[in-house]
Nucleic acid binder design. Structure first.
Length: 423
DNA sequence: TCTGGGGTCCTAGGACCC
DNA sequence: TCTGGGGTCCTAGGACCC
């Protein structure tokens, strides 16, 4: 059965940078870096920026001189924009095959099973061109009989210009050649720790990993590594997940723009996160049964280090920001201890489940009123911009607010930000 | 001076039960 | 005094992903 499976992995090149470029063509052919929240690290780099030596995940301040000398453009991450562009890319891919798995914001698997007779390379090229034309985003395509091989093909297509953006690994002989040249650390599912273990055993390429006996693979890396070895050998073990699995947890965590040491400031930031978490839950019609609040100091700075957490059950499970705030305060009190310079706080909700429909609550605020009120808040914030309405406990001074000095407009999701073309 | 955020899966080990 | 064996559930921590 696994023999006739066929997967494509389509992945946006330097996705965040490409999104910015769609709306600012002046960024094309120049070094561009998109920075993480708080303008801390480089999380997406244009080819030109990579050539300058700016590393993935590296703190941007390290490169200040380089950035100035080469006129590198810096952008604060604008996830609202990227999320919307991602939807557009996926809508385009759906015109090629109905089975799409949105694996991450910039990558999707496309189920091409049953199409093995086609000119796959040509089909891949068509995908590339259509996505480019309809959305402005450049992508690469990897094709293979398993997800892991499609992923690997995609990495090859991206690295080696000779492939012109499409790498088809359906042919066994060709595949074996490619695997021999592919570093084991770049295989999907092999992280830093596994790579070290494997290379110590002389397993330094994907081909060597594919030769690893299954029992040894399991001993070394549990069922996960065993499955990966099978996949590299063309045996499909990982199915398409076209319906996104129910979320089990959700989190909102942020670094502060500057360190915080009072409980009042910490609690303000927590209140802000709770408002966002509530929004997330309501968007997906979920309620949460458990909450954890944490805060910690920076391991990059001197001074006493601490990581504080506080967790509580939420009963009854809810998505009402007001109830979540009550629980969050108790959690935060437990997490906080004075005398430290905290640089980050976060709110995590677990034990998520679908909102019970029309179920009367014995104790509590009256389900109906809560739903109507929260919907009103969400509608206002969607229409007039995030944080038009917010919990008072969030405060207004917000000394802890994160830095986002170079934020682009929400070109596609906010009416006032839509670009204007003059002809 | 300045170092992101948000997930999932798996296992080991302890608590508890019969 | 000797102290079985099997099962479930929960949690913490590690590893991985983008």
């Amino acid at each position: 059965m696994s023999a006739d499976r066929l997967f494509a992995l389509v992945d946006g090149n330097n996705f965040y940078v490409s999104c910015e470029r769609v709306f600012r063509p002046s960024l094309c052919c120049r070094p561009v870096v998109v920075m993480s929240n708080n303008d801390g690290c480089a999380i997406s780099r244009s080819e030109e920026a990579k050539l300058l030596g700016i590393g993935m995940g590296e703190p941007v301040f390290k490169y200040r001189a380089l950035i100035e000398r080469h006129g590198v453009e810096l952008c604060s991450a604008n996830f609202t924009l990227y999320g919307d562009m991602s939807t557009r890319v996926n809508e385009t891919l759906r015109t090629f095959a109905p089975g799409i798995e949105m694996y991450s914001i910039d990558e999707s698997f496309v189920d091409l099973s049953g199409m093995a007779d086609r000119d796959l390379k040509g089909y891949g090229r068509e995908m590339r061109e259509r996505v480019r034309r309809w959305t402005g985003i450049p992508v690469c395509v990897g094709i293979g009989p398993t997800k892991a091989l499609a992923k690997l093909g995609n990495a090859v297509a991206k690295k080696n210009k000779l492939f012109a953006g499409v790498c088809d690994l359906m042919d066994r002989r060709f595949r074996e050649q490619v695997l021999r040249l592919f570093p084991v650390g770049d295989v999907w599912g092999v992280g830093r720790a596994k790579r070290r273990q494997l290379t110590a055993l002389g397993i330094d390429t994907a081909a060597r990993l594919a030769e690893l006996p299954l029992g040894q693979a399991r001993a070394l890396g549990t069922v996960v590594l065993e499955r990966l070895v099978r996949e590299l050998n063309g045996e499909s073990c990982l199915e398409m997940e076209t319906v996104p699995a129910a979320r089990k947890s959700a989190a909102v965590t942020r670094s502060f723009g500057q360190p915080v040491n009072s409980f009042a400031e910490l609690m303000e930031s927590v209140a802000q996160h709770v408002a966002r978490v509530g929004e997330k839950l309501r968007q997906q019609d979920l309620v949460a049964g458990e909450m954890t609040v944490f805060t910690h100091t920076s391991s990059f700075r001197g001074g006493p280090q601490r990581c504080g957490t506080g967790a509580r059950r939420i009963s009854p499970a809810t998505s009402d920001t007001r109830l979540l705030l009550q629980v969050a305060r108790r959690c935060a009190e437990k997490a906080y201890r004075g005398g430290y310079r905290y640089i980050k706080s976060g709110v995590i909700v677990d034990d998520l489940r679908p909102r019970p429909a029309g179920q009367p609550t014995l104790f509590g605020w009256g389900e109906e009123g809560s739903i109507v009120l929260m919907k009103a808040v969400d509608d206002i914030n969607r229409r007039y911009g995030a944080d038009t309405v917010f919990p008072a406990s969030r405060g207004t001074a917000r000394s802890w607010k994160m830095r986002q000095l170079r934020l682009s407009p929400r070109y596609t999701t906010r009416i006032g930000d839509v670009p204007v073309v003059r002809a």
